[in-house]
Each structure stands twice: as C-alpha cells, then as structure tokens.
Design a protein around this nucleic acid. Structure first.
Lengths: 209, 209
DNA sequence: AGTTGTGAAGGTATTCACAGCG
DNA sequence: CGCTGTGAATACCTTCACAACT
C-alpha cells in the first residue's frame, strides 16, 4: 500500500520537525498535534502507513530519531541521491548556492547555469557553474535529473524546453509562468503569490466557520 | 457552496496562466488540459463551482480575461488588498524588493524588516525598510496582516512569535524550520526540499504505474 | 459537429471509536 | 491508565456520462 500525496507532504514536514528536536526525549502524537495543527489521529494514521519500521514507538510516544529515519526511508529518501541543478543565477537562484538545507537530504545540488558569463565568474559555489549553452553537455554527463528554474519569467518556457531536451525529468518552477511540459515530466510550482493566495483563502474560510 | 482546497490551488494557477495569454482568443477546457496536465472535466468542474460569473464561456471555450476575473473574485482576490511585509532581507528576502509579480494581485508588499541596520540603508525598494525592533510599531500602523519570513533558520521561531504579537495572522515561511503557532494563525511553508521531495515522490509513483 | 455544465458514481483521504499493548 | 495502531464509517474530491446549448 502506497502513501497518499497529502500524507507524504505531512510526513516530509514531520521528519524535518523531528530532526530539529532533542533526540533523547520521545514525543506523542498529541504533542505533534499542538505543534503542527494536524489532528493526532491523522498523524498516527500517516505513521501507521510506514509499517516496516521497528521500535519507533514506545508507551509514551515516538522516538524522534527513529521516526524521522523511518519516514525518510518510506518516502524513498535513502535511495540513490537525486542530482539537481539550479538554472538562472539571479537573486533567487544564487541564494541556493550557499544554502545549507541540502545537507542530510538525498538531493545533491551539483551544478548551476546562467546565460550571463559574467555572473558565473563572480559567483562562488561548492560546485561548478556553467554558461547556459553547456546544459546539453553537462546535464547528461553529471546524471542530473531535476532542475530548479529561477530565470526571468519571459525565458521560463524556452529554458524549460531546453532542460527537458537535455534529460531533465523534474522541474521546480520558481517563475510565475505556468509551464507546458510533456506527460513524462513533473513540475512543482513554487510561487509567492500562490502561497499568499492559499494563506488568505484559509484565513477567510476560518472566519466564516 | 465553497471551493475545495485542491480546487482553489488549481484555479489560482489557472488564473495566472490565463492572464499570460492573448485576451482575444478563447480557450477550451481540452486545451487547458494539454497545457496544465489536469483532466478537462476536473477543470470544468472547478470552473462550474464559481457559478456566479456571467458570460465566461461561449460555444468554443472560455474568455480568458473574464474567466481569470471570475476566479480572482471567487477566491476573494477582489476584496480589500492584503498588506504584507518581508522579514529578513538576506538573499531570498531581498529578492522580493523588486519582484514584479505583485502587480495586478491583491497583495501589497509595503514594508521590509531586518535586524541589520546596514542592510536597510544599502538596499533600495519602492516601500520603506525598517530595523527589526520597529515591527511592533509599524505593523499595526500600516495594517499589515501577512509576513514573508526569510530570516536565518535559528531565528525563525522567535521572529514568528514577535510578528504574531505585532498582529500578523498569516505567515509564508521560507525557512526550513517548522513553526509552532496559535490556532488562529495560518502558516504556509515554502521549502525547496519539500518541493523536490514531492517532485521525486511523484516521479517514483509514475514509474511503478 | 463541438463545447460547457452537472447529477450520480466511484475512489481517496480523513475521522471516529475502540482494541491492544506496555 | 495513556499511548499507539487500525478496521469501519464518514466526508471529500474526482471521474464519468450525458443533457443542454450554439
């Protein structure tokens, strides 16, 4: 039995939360409810779906470390790391160059691209930066399968097309452009406007309740 | 009857997409299916839930402009604009200072905060930037209700607490920290790791299908 | 023809309620 | 007892199939 999409999202956040905690003291589902706002039975149900894990719960709650590990495994985070690149090194794109959040994940940010050669020379990173025209070379050679798209809105679609030609199968889209891609490709849109939108929608819904 | 959360997310993206199109030529639900990947009947069902709008469809599809307007209205985007601030003006935070994407939305980014006074003086924006200790003053005075949180991870929770004390009811959280907030407050997490996570989860699910 | 719009059916996710365990 | 774990019930969302309209 698989894990449902909403459950996977909750579990992923849960794992992050657990790793931020003191590993020694166990935590109950009701405490997690207080912290996350999700009902405790939903949390327990989500966790019960990971049923391969041993020793994650005691009589007084869950062991944060073991639970986090079990979640990571169930979500496939222990497999071969996914190699990623960031495309477009403007303000948003370049902010990933020194982002520490990738540590301990199975995502390996290992290349950056920008059409402006100047930028590439100025910026520093722990991995190589390339001019945009080298995408078709570099992406297959490094086995990169996912891209973080941070180019200006006008170039979003054409850049996505090139990335897909180069072998990218997953796109995290930071531009406001809605991308049109083949069936086999997956896109995850990250938009501040959408985030604010669903935020205010939920706040509005809360009022009428 | 209200609009479901998943439907609201689709509609919000749909509105963005429609506004990027030629306003003169109408578009059918099947074309939208090709572009977005969502089944045409889901799109039609979503649209039918907005049933207050007039003249949004003809015999050969929808009028992009009218449909976008109807969606915006149904999602509550025509009401009083929501005033927002950005907190933490590092790489990510400062990238919002000149972000054009707010134009035409009901979100009004009207203040920035940072604990580093130097940064405030160096950075330029179309709205005022304040030192962090002025939050309690400025936020109520400008009627700001939502905040975009871009501070370093270690300061996320304490900054969120201060924002809530100052009257913020909605938080878009760009830090990897899971925030603990009162019932009345809404948080929307925006995390590159979560985005990559659900992306790869979907790609993995696709393979086994 | 080709399109939207929608009641009804089907499938998923959440909630409940309680069994089972330490 | 308080906690987790889970079958059963409920609520929700999506899909289907077809009516209605141009």
């Amino acid at each position: 039995m698989g894990i449902s999409k909403p459950a996977a999202e909750r579990l992923s956040q849960l794992a992050r939360l657990l790793e931020q905690r003191d590993a020694a003291t166990s935590i109950t589902s009701s405490e997690l409810e207080r912290i996350t706002g999700w009902p405790s039975h939903t949390i327990r149900k989500d966790i019960s779906a990971l049923s391969g894990a041993t020793e994650i719960s005691t009589t007084s709650g869950y062991d944060p470390k073991r639970l986090a590990a079990a979640i990571r495994e169930a979500l496939g985070f222990t497999n071969e790391p996914t190699r990623c690149c960031v495309v477009g090194l403007g303000r948003i794109g370049s902010s990933f160059l020194d982002y520490e959040g990738f540590a301990g994940t199975t995502f390996d940010l290992c290349a950056g691209f920008d059409s402006n050669v100047n930028r590439i020379e100025i910026l520093k990173a722990n991995f190589p930066l390339y001019p945009a025209f080298k995408m078709k070379d570099v992406i297959p050679r490094l086995g990169i399968t996912a891209a973080i798209l941070c180019v200006p809105s006008e170039q979003a679609q054409q850049t996505a097309d090139k990335l897909i030609e180069s072998g990218i199968v997953g796109l995290v889209n930071f531009t406001p452009t809605i991308l049109s891609v083949p069936q086999a490709i997956e896109v995850e849109n990250v938009s501040i406007i959408d985030a604010l939108g669903s935020l205010t929608a939920r706040l509005a819904a809360k009022k009428t309740r």
